[in-house]
Write a protein that binds this DNA or RNA. Structure first.
Length: 523
RNA sequence: GGGCCCAUAGCUCAGCGGUGAGAGCGACUCCCUCAUAAGGAGCAGGUCGCAGGUUCAAAUCCUGCUGGGCCUACCA
């Protein structure tokens, strides 16, 4: 099986903040999950550089346009790397020449199919906002919504249009035939309502004369066969998903990887991914993506994240303080995918201490310590019959595997982690119930001690795979201490109880999530 | 204006017609000592937003109200 997943590409107007991070972490987690399942997995991210806003951002920062996009691309990629988000391809829409070819190819195909035509775009342009508005957007029909004293200029532009209106029925059919096309389903209802109101064509180019000139060329991707126009957002941005799959240069690769299995996007761009993009692909005679996964937005300490109010957090700073695994865990555990969530630093600290250090980290630590102390570091293989308490832990483990899997398939990350944690908690209870430290003092309990320690180790083995999509580095450390190789492709399909390799030797017990002294004045 | 979602223990949420309303976290009490001053057990008596209605029976269905959020198309 192949699995191709993408995130939205971000505007490189400013460095990324935690608001951008949730989506990337979620997509990366899904990509890692599919790799563990043994799927041939491809994960694409990128930046959306072609917008005319980007040269303006460069100006505002007194940078050359190319210098600016280079710097921003490095900042984005650096942030994702710090969060252990590892795309296979990072598209830069203004720099990558294969992307320009893909965008033009998609346009040509749609044009050849008769769905591109020249028309006149009319709108009201506010020179202060550098933005077009429609009449209905204007205050009292004449003033700019952001500048009440300014009347935007009425403009007409000759643009290319895409005949979206022809696709209404086919899009409704698409939703009917694929109830999971839009996840979660509440968004499917929104889109359906939109479709039933009927669709309007949209413009897909802008005149070259209004484009910023960079290095002697207009900023943007030229419209094929018409140097007077550059492509406008839809064909120069959404197309990145097809570029990464090989369009148009590598037909074999494209045949293998297209369509995308999932586009992960924020709720603000649902419409573009669930309506515009599938219609564009239909027009070009290409398959539509299998699924669009829509996540909510994040607030920061109860407030909207906004550059202007300054309440932004640099994810790299968080990673420096807590580690990528903890940040990933916190976001996916505390922010439900399908709703808006609130990032609260105190809650991150709480999750770190309670869930990661005390529950999971300490479980590993006490298990590895006891195996080292009582069994010379060799993980015992159970030979004695299974006692009721052993069977109960096994049952919980099997339920945790099933629950974690089901939830990940449904983009329910907090549910997945909750399911895994049911095993963490049960394993800690199991240790207390069986008191291996007492068994170790009882010469007659030697066999029983082996069973208990082997059972705990087995629970940890499963956890080190179950949690690996969310916390790759921590799980690698867990497995190292357990004497196991790093989780590898296909391991997810092998999450069967009782397969701890015989004779495995554990490593030294080192806290994976070191406790932090939160009252340390040095902090 | 039209459409949609949410409001359950201090906090985050599950339950979505039927035994006495649940989980995790926090607080408190107790137990243990293998472990990262970690772990386990007990304990919370919450008008299930408000007001009506349907039903043998409602947090769970219907109506209205209040509060919060979202969609209603070319900034992405």
């Amino acid at each position: 099986m192949k699995y191709y997943v993408t995130t939205a590409i971000d505007y490189p107007n400013a460095a990324p903040h935690i608001g951008h991070s949730y989506e990337k972490i979620a997509a990366d987690t899904i990509a890692r999950y599919h790799r563990l399942r043994g799927d041939d997995t491809f994960f694409c991210m990128g930046v959306d550089e072609n917008s005319q806003h980007v040269p303006r951002a460069a100006d505002a920062n007194r940078a050359g346009v190319i210098e600016w996009v280079d710097r921003m691309a490095a900042a984005f990629q650096g942030t994702w790397a710090a969060l252990d988000v590892r795309p296979d391809r990072f598209i830069r829409t203004a720099i990558d020449t294969d992307h320009a070819r893909a965008s033009q190819e998609l346009f040509r195909r749609a044009q050849a199919g008769g769905d591109i035509y020249k028309g006149t775009y009319t709108g009201y342009y506010c020179h202060n906002c550098n933005t077009f508005y429609e009449q209905g957007d204007l205050t009292d029909g004449k003033a700019c919504p952001n500048h009440p004293t300014i009347a935007p200029e009425y403009l007409e532009e000759e643009n290319y249009f895409f005949a979206l209106s022809r696709y209404t029925d086919r899009l409704i059919d698409l939703l009917d035939a694929n109830p999971d096309f839009i996840m979660p389903r509440v968004w499917g209802a929104e889109i359906r309502a939109l479709l039933q109101r009927g669709l309007r064509d949209f413009s897909v180019s802008r005149p070259v004369k209004s484009a910023r000139v960079v290095d002697g060329k207009p900023w943007g991707i030229p419209v094929p066969g018409d140097p007077e126009h550059v492509l406008y957002v839809w064909f120069d941005a959404l197309t990145n998903y097809a570029t990464a799959a090989g369009l148009p240069d590598d037909a074999n690769r494209f045949a293998d990887w297209w369509p995308a299995d999932a586009h992960v996007v924020g709720k603000d761009i649902t419409r573009f991914h669930c309506v515009y993009w599938p219609a564009m692909l239909m027009a070009a005679g290409l398959e539509v993506p299998r699924q669009v996964a829509v996540h909510g937005f994040m607030t920061l300490e109860g407030q909207r994240i906004s550059k202007t109010t300054g309440n932004i957090i640099d994810p790299v700073e968080l990673v420096d303080e807590w580690g990528a695994d903890a940040v990933r865990y916190y976001l996916l555990r505390d922010v439900a995918f399908d709703r808006d969530g609130d990032f609260v630093r105190a809650n991150l600290a709480q999750r770190y201490v309670s869930d990661l250090a005390n529950d999971l980290g300490n479980l590993l630590n006490r298990a590895v310590s006891m195996i080292g102390r009582y069994r010379d570091g060799v993980v015992p293989t159970a030979t004695a019959p299974e006692a009721p308490t052993d069977a109960e832990l096994r049952t919980v483990a099997e339920a945790a595997v099933a629950g974690t899997t089901d939830c990940l398939e449904a983009w329910d990350f907090d549910g997945a982690l909750d399911a895994s944690w049911s095993l963490v908690r049960r394993a800690n209870q199991y240790v207390d119930e069986n008191q291996p430290w007492k068994l170790a003092r009882d010469p007659d309990a030697d066999g029983r001690l082996s069973v208990v320690l082997g059972t705990v180790a087995e629970a940890l083995r499963l956890l080190s795979t179950l949690l690996a999509p969310v916390m790759p580095t921590a799980c690698a450390k867990m497995r190292d201490q357990l004497g196991l190789p790093m989780a590898a492709g296909g391991d997810w399909l092998d999450l069967t109880w009782g397969r701890f390799p015989p004779g495995t030797k554990v490593g030294a017990p080192v806290p994976v999530f070191p406790r932090k002294d939160l009252t340390d004045p040095a902090r």
